[in-house]
Design a protein around this nucleic acid. Structure first.
Lengths: 128, 128
DNA sequence: CAGCATCCGATAGGATACTG
DNA sequence: CAGTATCCTATCGGATGCTG
């Protein structure tokens, strides 16, 4: 299996199930974060790593490779010493930023209600 | 940890990072699929299970519990014999359907380009 | 600096068996 | 029918050490 590959079961036909592969791609722990950060400005590897802080080098490499393979991120190497590698969003990458904003708006707007619901649910479970 | 809980690292402040918890919630293997199916019409447990086909009973239960806890899905029990349990989207659940459509449109529109990019990438890797 | 390779623990998720 | 409980595996992802 290639970097950033996922295996989603064929559920049924219809077209709206095309969502599943995309979600399982961007739904991992770091991908969206990297896209958002690179949406602000292009960055070098360690710059990105410092911004995120808690990501391991391994996972940042994995995440970037996956994004590069998908054509969402462009990787530019300058063969100097020490080497310099820049990452930037491609037009395709930028275009993903938009639907992500919609989801973000929804999240910001509804997170309080979700959290309230969770507390209610947990309280009820507690009572049992 | 409660059903459907995720742990996302505090990356930095800013607000757009509120996306991360939502994505790690809906980014799992089944959640979005269930939301989409229930967006079509409310369904009983085994009805849902048959529709999806490849999901295990265990994971369907988990998924539905998480969605119920988040207030996205309403669970209605009819204490008959045999018992009948219906699942339906709440208004909050329906509201999530919309941003999901945006993402879905993006996916449908750009999947070919992504796949093309992947093949190009894999071919180049092969050449090494 | 920007990685790859290795090891290892934590979690996701499937299969199966049992219950009200 | 609609679950719960248990077991087991595969993958995710962190830590560490090495390299051009």
């Amino acid at each position: 299996m290639k970097p950033g590959d996922t295996n989603v079961p064929e559920v049924m036909s219809g077209g709206c199930e095309r969502l599943a592969p995309v979600l399982s791609r961007i739904g991992d722990k770091w991908t969206v974060l990297v896209i958002i950060l690179l949406g602000r400005r292009s960055m070098r590897f360690n710059e990105l790593k410092r911004q995120i802080g808690s990501i391991s080098q391994r996972m940042l490499t994995f995440t970037l490779r996956g994004l590069e393979r998908d054509g969402l991120v462009k990787r530019t190497v300058q063969a100097s010493v020490p080497p310099r590698v820049d990452y930037e969003l491609t037009p395709l990458g930028f275009s993903l930023l938009e639907p992500l904003q919609h989801l973000g708006s929804w999240a910001v707007a509804n997170m309080p209600e979700i959290e309230a619901s969770q507390e209610r649910y947990d309280a009820e479970v507690e009572a049992a």
